[in-house]
Simulated scan of single mutants.
Amino acid sequence: MLKRRLMIIGFVLGCLIFSGCSDGVVTSKSVSESIFAMDTYMTVTAYGNEAQNAVTEAIAEIERLDKLLSVENKQSEIFLLNQNGGGKLSKDTKYLLEQSLKLWTETDGKFDITIYPIMKAWGFIDKNYVIPDSNTLNQLLSLVNSSTIKINEQKSTVTFEKPGTKIDLGGIAKGYTSSKIMDIFRKHNISKGLVNLGGNVQVLGKKSNNKMWQVAIKDPDSTDYLGVLQAEDCAVITSGGYERYFEQDGFIYHHIIDPLTGYPADTDLKSVTIISGDGTLADGLSTALFIMGKDKAVDYWKKNSKKFNMILLDVKGNLYTTEGIVDQFISEHNIEIIKI
């Protein structure tokens, strides 16, 4: 039965992440370490003679980026930029701002890092959840506009042209982090490895038995999986309203805010999984396409099919996958193939 196979696969994947096992086939030294950062548990696993050095450096990189990009840490670059309305940019932050503004343009504003004041008003930053009144949201919505972010390329500085503008790179930071870890792996001659950043997975090469990694895609409505993706040299990143939410007066309010309305996105999708060689892109798109909804997400993929593939689950339980990964995704569910 596929369900039993999925359970076994999930166990094996967990074993790879947490204890360094490899389907009973050991071809090289493996090292695995875990850390709590960016408000989630993360695990880094590498195979090779330099595995320990690679993992140690990867953990240090996670800690560095966590301190750099935090919106709450008063010593972080993002906190200081928000307090000062701009400032000097490090190489990492400059790159992330550039990619964020590019995504903002390409997704017609669905990915917008200036959403921070509204995220905070809802309590999704400090977990003090509350439903903001309409007047508050309307005032804060006037600050949500990435076009007011101006980068000076020569000076490596940024200016927030509208007073009160604040940014949050949380919708793109984990994907960037996982891609940076892949760079560290390659520097240490690691040919196979995996990083799990709170459900954001990125893999390098193939497993020790020379087969592709098996990444389980969570079913938002149960403890089972929607299916398993066979992955190689890519990021697999999922976004959905089930990840972080609160309930009040019988209504559920999730953390993926529509920049147009200031409310949790009213979408016909339950989850969006992006598969791409670029972890930064995958992270940002998983949020943007969730907000877009199914039809616009499909249209966007058709225009950008060379950059990523995707798995969509809609609110009716229908499962879709793009044609580029049709042979890599195993599921008990009926799957509709999205074609160009």
Score class of each variant (00 low, 15 high):
35 I>G: 11
332 E>K: 08
136 T>K: 09
263 Y>G: 02
193 G>Q: 02
15 C>Q: 06
138 N>K: 06
251 F>D: 15
75 Q>K: 14
318 N>A: 03
296 K>L: 12
18 F>K: 09
60 A>Y: 06
326 V>F: 02
49 N>T: 00
11 F>Y: 01
327 D>K: 15
231 A>K: 12
38 M>A: 02
134 S>Y: 11
292 M>R: 01
340 I>V: 01
114 T>F: 02
254 H>E: 06
10 G>N: 09
122 W>A: 03
90 S>T: 11
94 K>G: 07
107 T>S: 07
150 K>I: 08
86 G>I: 02
287 T>L: 04
203 V>S: 10
152 N>D: 14
305 S>H: 14
89 L>P: 14
310 M>Y: 08
319 L>Q: 11
300 Y>I: 02
206 K>I: 08
314 D>W: 08
147 S>E: 13
4 R>D: 09
97 L>R: 13
184 I>R: 14
52 Q>R: 06
296 K>E: 15
161 E>R: 07
160 F>G: 09
241 G>R: 05
84 N>Y: 13
178 S>F: 01
222 S>K: 05
84 N>H: 12
42 M>L: 14
286 S>H: 04
245 Y>A: 10
71 V>L: 05
228 V>M: 08
318 N>F: 11
41 Y>W: 11
302 K>N: 15
300 Y>R: 14
211 K>F: 06
94 K>L: 08
55 V>L: 02
206 K>G: 00
220 P>Y: 04
184 I>L: 11
316 K>A: 14
313 L>S: 13
123 G>H: 10
240 G>L: 00
21 C>F: 07
86 G>D: 04
201 V>Y: 04
324 G>W: 02
33 E>F: 00
86 G>K: 05
293 G>I: 07
37 A>D: 10
295 D>R: 15
105 T>N: 12
13 L>A: 06
339 K>D: 09
121 A>F: 06
305 S>F: 13
237 I>R: 13
281 L>V: 11
27 T>N: 14
321 T>R: 11
198 G>E: 05
92 D>Y: 09
270 K>W: 05
41 Y>G: 10
243 E>P: 04
176 Y>H: 13
230 Q>Y: 12
137 L>N: 02
250 G>M: 00
278 D>A: 12
47 Y>G: 03
188 H>S: 09
192 K>H: 15
307 K>Y: 10
209 N>Y: 07
228 V>N: 10
215 V>F: 09
187 K>A: 07
85 G>Q: 01
263 Y>Q: 12
202 Q>V: 12
112 D>G: 02
94 K>R: 15
269 L>M: 12
126 D>T: 03
81 L>I: 09
4 R>K: 09
256 I>Q: 14
114 T>G: 03
339 K>G: 10
111 F>T: 01
328 Q>K: 12
266 D>G: 11
260 L>T: 07
90 S>P: 08
197 L>V: 04
180 K>E: 15
53 N>F: 03
256 I>K: 02
339 K>V: 14
283 D>E: 12
56 T>W: 00
19 S>W: 04
